[in-house]
């Protein structure tokens, strides 16, 4: 017995376009705010969203439930593709890396304030991440949403690399604990 998500991926692997439409309806509204928060541009976010879901359709045959839920499968992919996009844009423009405090504060409210922007704002303060001690949350957000490596984070927050590593490990341990409860 699989979950609804697993069942949909199984049917997608068999070439069922309706199952894909339902898979998209189910997960795109959850994944879109994540992508938007990372790439911070509506056109780019829509592009990345399309790439991510196209990949899920093309690679549904290789999905293995033993290696994770469809939720983690699609979210991990979305986060990776969004970060790839941000990095390639940075490389192309060769400009100064946008201040990441901005990435963390998500879209500034004065530029729009529609549902998606507010969504990304709220997720900063509420939820499981919000229950982590500030320093742990900070390194997790800089890595996950900002796409920084641990060395870059250490430089940025002016802490020893070892401290950053430890905060990452403790923060993730705590998130895993919260999920089990």
């Amino acid at each position: 017995m699989g979950t609804m998500g697993e069942e949909l991926v199984r049917r997608m692997a068999a070439g069922d376009g309706d199952a894909f439409a339902r898979f998209y309806d189910r997960y795109s509204p959850l994944v879109y705010p994540l992508i938007l928060r990372i790439v911070r541009d509506r056109t780019d976010a829509a592009d990345v969203l399309q790439d991510v879901f196209w990949e899920t359709w093309r690679s549904a045959t290789t999905y293995d439930p033993a290696r994770g839920t469809p939720e983690a499968w699609v979210v991990t992919r979305a986060r990776t593709r969004a970060i790839d996009r941000v990095r390639s844009v940075r490389r192309r423009s060769e400009t100064f890396v946008a201040p990441l405090d901005e990435a963390i504060a998500a879209a500034p409210s004065e530029t729009g304030g529609d549902a998606a922007d507010r969504a990304s704002d709220r997720s900063v303060v509420t939820g499981a991440l919000g229950r982590l001690p500030g320093p742990q949350r900070e390194v997790l957000e800089l890595a996950y949403y900002g796409g920084l490596t641990q060395t870059e984070i250490a430089e940025r927050i002016k802490q020893p690399l070892g401290t950053v590593k430890t905060r990452m490990r403790l923060g993730l341990e705590r998130l895993r604990e919260m999920m089990k409860r």
Partner: peptide, 12 residues
């Protein structure tokens, strides 16, 4: 899974 759960619990 935990990171995905953080993302999924956010508003849609």
């Amino acid at each position: 899974e935990a990171l995905a759960a953080v993302v999924l619990e956010g508003p849609a």
